[in-house]
Design a protein around this nucleic acid. Structure first.
Length: 461
DNA sequence: CCCCACAGCC
């Protein structure tokens, strides 16, 4: 097996060399520190492809100039650009040059595989590290969080603690993000108490921001607020987390009030060093607050301010939020016009918002048109047909509804599940608000969440 | 000369 593996590695390396057609001459007669300096500069200037080309050239003309640090830079370039093949070639080169035992290189590989969505490979790299430190553990936990597996991330965090390694502030920050994604309040509280016991950790702003966010996402807005006001140092993350927190909890006025305070705080500080400028995520929180409160005019005003006063280009989330704002107010036509005038191609989320509003306001004509748009973007998504069929149902168009339901049934898209109740099998599809089983299933989910939460206490060690 | 982190639309 090793022979086979080795020959495939050789092939990868050879192909990496064959692909090498540099557009410009590189200075390759360098010793490692000098060559690495050049690589680092390419990274700092975001010239990722240049960095990789330079590395290939080095490997061909002056292999002795390449060391483990050079590979760190190359792998970082691949990670930033999600260059799968190039990163795998880097992995192969690391093996060939005998850099396998070097832990910071393995950590880079974990990051690379995570960034390219290959969590299993990230785990394999981690698993082969003989003497694991807190940093490579953190990279693995981050890989699970970044790939939407917060439960796995927390499992790994617990495993790490059981090996008696001390988590550093970075480990705890990412573990708190996992808690936030999972709604694991008790685990989050446990981490909070851990932080309070360690003096060194208490002043870390990222960590405190992660705590605020964790409390927000786990529903304890009071704890989040207490932390927010007790911290003397606040950056744009601190403010944004709290503004979004209020918005998510339906406290729109509090969110807008806090946003005003944030801008005020800037005015009070003379030096530019501590200036906290709202960014596009902050504005997303503000727009969410307006949407939830149905404050159409305020939302439009803030959107305008974002573009004009802060020169932030609205991205799809902002546009989606604006569409939602208009839709909830029943301004379907204005919402449709807004989408048509957008500089950015609308995605399925934006159209789905409009479709939901059509359903809410029983607008068949617009609903069908929007459904067509959605079908082009996501042909397999069943939920949209369900929404449309609900419009038909609401209007008493039973034939249309039945026909549409038959089409859905024949497609059997993934993500559609069946629930057995007694002798009857009922289809349950996301977005089917009229389904009689929805309340029942919701109850089951709440019950399960309770069980999951109670399992999140630290295991006895 | 090196490796890990915080806020987001349905």
């Amino acid at each position: 097996m090793n022979v086979k593996k080795a020959s495939s590695i050789q092939r990868v390396i050879k192909s990496s060399l064959r692909n090498n057609q540099p557009k410009a001459k590189f200075e390759t007669s360098l010793k490692p520190p000098r060559a690495n300096h050049t690589l680092k500069q390419y990274l700092q200037r975001n010239s990722f492809t240049r960095a990789i080309e330079f590395f290939r050239e080095l490997l061909r003309q002056n292999p002795s100039a390449v060391d483990s640090y050079s590979l760190v830079f190359v792998l970082k370039a691949c990670t930033r650009q999600s260059l799968i093949v190039e990163g795998q070639q880097g992995h192969a080169t690391a093996k060939k040059l005998g850099f396998e035992p070097i832990i910071f290189l393995q950590t880079c590989l974990i990051d690379f595989y995570s960034a390219t969505g290959n969590v299993d490979s990230a785990y394999c790299v981690f698993d082969e590290i003989h003497c694991k430190n807190a940093i490579c553990w953190t990279s693995l936990i981050t890989a699970y969080v970044d790939n939407d597996m917060p439960g796995k991330a927390l499992d790994m965090f617990k495993k790490m603690l059981m090996t008696n390694l001390e988590p550093d502030q970075v480990t705890l920050t990412i573990a708190l993000t996992a808690c936030a994604d999972l709604g694991a309040l008790s685990m989050g509280e446990w981490i909070h108490s851990y932080i309070c016991r360690e003096n060194v950790l208490r002043d870390d702003l990222c960590l405190r921001n992660a705590l605020v966010n964790m409390y927000v996402k786990c529903g304890d807005i009071d704890a989040a607020q207490t932390l927010f006001y007790s911290s003397s140092q606040k950056d744009v993350f601190t403010w944004t987390s709290m503004i979004v927190g209020h918005a998510l909890h339906g406290q729109s006025l509090e969110a807008l009030d806090l946003f005003a305070k944030m801008k005020q705080a800037n005015g009070n500080i003379k030096g530019c060093k501590h200036l906290v400028v709202p960014n596009d995520v902050t504005f997303l929180g503000v727009l969410m607050a307006c949407t939830h409160a149905g404050m159409v005019e305020e939302g439009k005003r803030q959107f305008k301010s974002m573009v004009q006063d802060y020169e932030l280009r609205p991205r799809l989330p902002h546009l989606g939020c604006m569409v939602d704002l208009l839709c909830r107010a029943g301004l379907l036509e204005e919402a449709h016009d807004f989408i048509s005038q957008m500089q950015v191609q609308p995605n399925a989320v934006v159209w789905r918002t409009l479709l939901g509003a059509c359903s809410l306001h029983d607008n068949i004509e617009a609903g069908s048109t929007v459904r067509l748009q959605l079908h082009e973007l996501e042909p397999t998504h069943v939920g949209d047909d369900v929404t449309l069929s609900n419009i038909y149902a609401a209007k008493g168009l039973w034939y249309e509804k039945t026909m549409l339901r038959c089409r859905i049934r024949s497609r059997r898209a993934p993500g559609c599940s069946s629930v057995e109740v007694g002798s009857e099998v009922n289809e349950f599809v996301a977005g089917d608000s009229h389904h009689p089983l929805k309340a029942q299933i919701y109850d089951v989910l709440v019950h399960l969440m309770g069980i999951i939460r109670s399992c999140n206490h630290m295991p006895e060690t």
